[in-house]
Simulated assay, not measured.
Amino acid sequence: MFVLELGLIGLCVALLPLSYVWVKASDDKFRKLVWMTTFLTLDLVMFGGFTRLTDSGLGCPDWPGCYGTASPFVAHAQIAAAHAALPSGPVSMTKAWIEMIHRYFAMAIGVLIVAQTAIAWRARFKRLPLHVSPWWPTALLMLIGVQGAFGAWTVTMKLQPIIVTTHLLLGLALLGTLGWLAARLTPIPVYEPQISRYRFAAAVGLALLIVQIALGGWVSTNYAVLACTDFPTCNGQWIPPMDFAHGFHLWRALGMTADGDVITQDALVAIHWTHRTFAFAVIAYLVALALRLRGYESLRRPANSVLLVLAIQFATGLSNIVLQWPLPIAVAHNGGAAVLLLLVVMLNFRTASSRPGRAAVPTRDAAPA
C-alpha cells in the first residue's frame, strides 16, 4: 500500500511542472516539457549531492519507503528510536526528510519522462510532427529505471562507493541525454557548417569531463575531500605518499579495503591527488576549446558559459580545501560539474548538428494541448 502512496506523491509533485507547461499559451509544449524536465533533473542531481554531503543517504535505511511507510511522519517512532540508540548515526528526522524528499523528487522526474514517452508515441501513431523519435524518451525511461535500481542498492549496500558513484554517473547521464534531446528540439540560431570540424575535439572534451566527474564522485563517496589539506601542494608535498591499489580498488565497503581493513590515509590521498591533478588537464583543454569555439556566433554563449563555470569550479574546488569543505560550497561544486556537463553536451550537439544534412531547425511541435 505504501508503494502506491509513494507513487501518488511523485505524481502530485510532477503535476506542478506539468500544469505550468500545459497552461502556457504555446504550440511547442513538448519542447517546453523536455526543457523543464532537464532543469528539474539538474536540480535533482544537485539535491542528490546535498543528500550525500549531509550524510543523509541512509536517513531511511530501507527502500523505497521509510521504515515501510511513505513518509517520515508515519515512521516517526522508528526514526526516533534509531536516533536515540545511536545519536551520531545516519538516522535522524532531518536526514530522513532529506532522503525522502530526494526520492519524491526522483519519482516526479520519472512521471515527467513517462509523460514525454506517452506524448511521443501518441504523436508517432497519429503522425503528428513532433520532430523527435519516440525511442528517445523511451530510452530515458529505461535509463531512469536503471538509475532507480542503483538508488535502491545505494541504501541496501550501505553506501558502497562504487554503487554511489555509479548512481551519480547515471544521474548525470540522464541529465546529459535530456540536454541533448532538448537541444534537438530547439532551433539553432545560426547555421554554421564550418564548426563541424570541431566535433571530434568537442567529443574529446566531453570524454575528459566525464572521467573527471567520475574521479570527483570517487573522491566524494570515499570522503577524501580533505585528504590533502593545502594547495597547490598536497600535505606539503608535490607528490605525497599514495596507495593507488587500495584507493582505486572498486569493489569494497565504505571506509574499508578489499581485505576488510580500515582504508589508509595514503589511499585517500591517492584518490584526492588524482582528481586534483587530472583537473588541470581538463581545465586546460576545455578552456582552449571554448576560446576557439566562442568565435562562432552559434557557439558563443555556451562557450562563454563554459569558461565562466570552469572559473567557478576552480574557485569552489579550491575553497573546499582551504575552508575545510563547507557544505554550501561543496554543493555548489557538485552542481557546477552538472552544469558544465550540460554545457559541453550542448557544444557537442551544435558541432555534430552542423554537418551537411544534419541541421536541426525544427518548426513548432504538434504536441497535444
Rank of each mutant, 00 (worst) to 15 (best):
F2I: 00
L4T: 13
I9E: 07
G10R: 02
L15F: 15
V21H: 13
V23R: 15
V45W: 03
G49H: 04
S56H: 01
I79G: 03
A80N: 07
A81G: 05
A81R: 12
A85I: 12
M93E: 11
T94M: 13
A96M: 10
W97F: 14
I101H: 04
I101K: 01
R103T: 09
I109P: 00
W121F: 07
F125K: 12
H131K: 10
S133P: 04
W136P: 05
G148K: 09
G148F: 11
T156N: 08
Q160P: 01
L170A: 03
G171Q: 11
A173F: 14
T177C: 15
R184H: 11
R184T: 11
P187L: 05
P187W: 07
V190I: 13
P193V: 09
Q194L: 14
S196E: 12
A201I: 04
L208Y: 08
Q212V: 11
W218T: 00
A227I: 03
T229H: 12
P241V: 10
F244M: 03
G247M: 10
H249Y: 15
L250G: 10
A270N: 07
A270S: 10
W273F: 00
A284Q: 06
R294L: 12
G295V: 06
Y296R: 09
E297S: 12
L307Q: 09
L308I: 13
I312F: 09
L318G: 08
L323F: 15
V331Q: 00
H333K: 10
A337H: 07
L343E: 03
L343W: 04
V344D: 01
A352R: 11
A352P: 03
S353T: 14
S354F: 15
P356Q: 11
A360V: 08
T363K: 14
D365L: 14
P368N: 03
P368V: 06
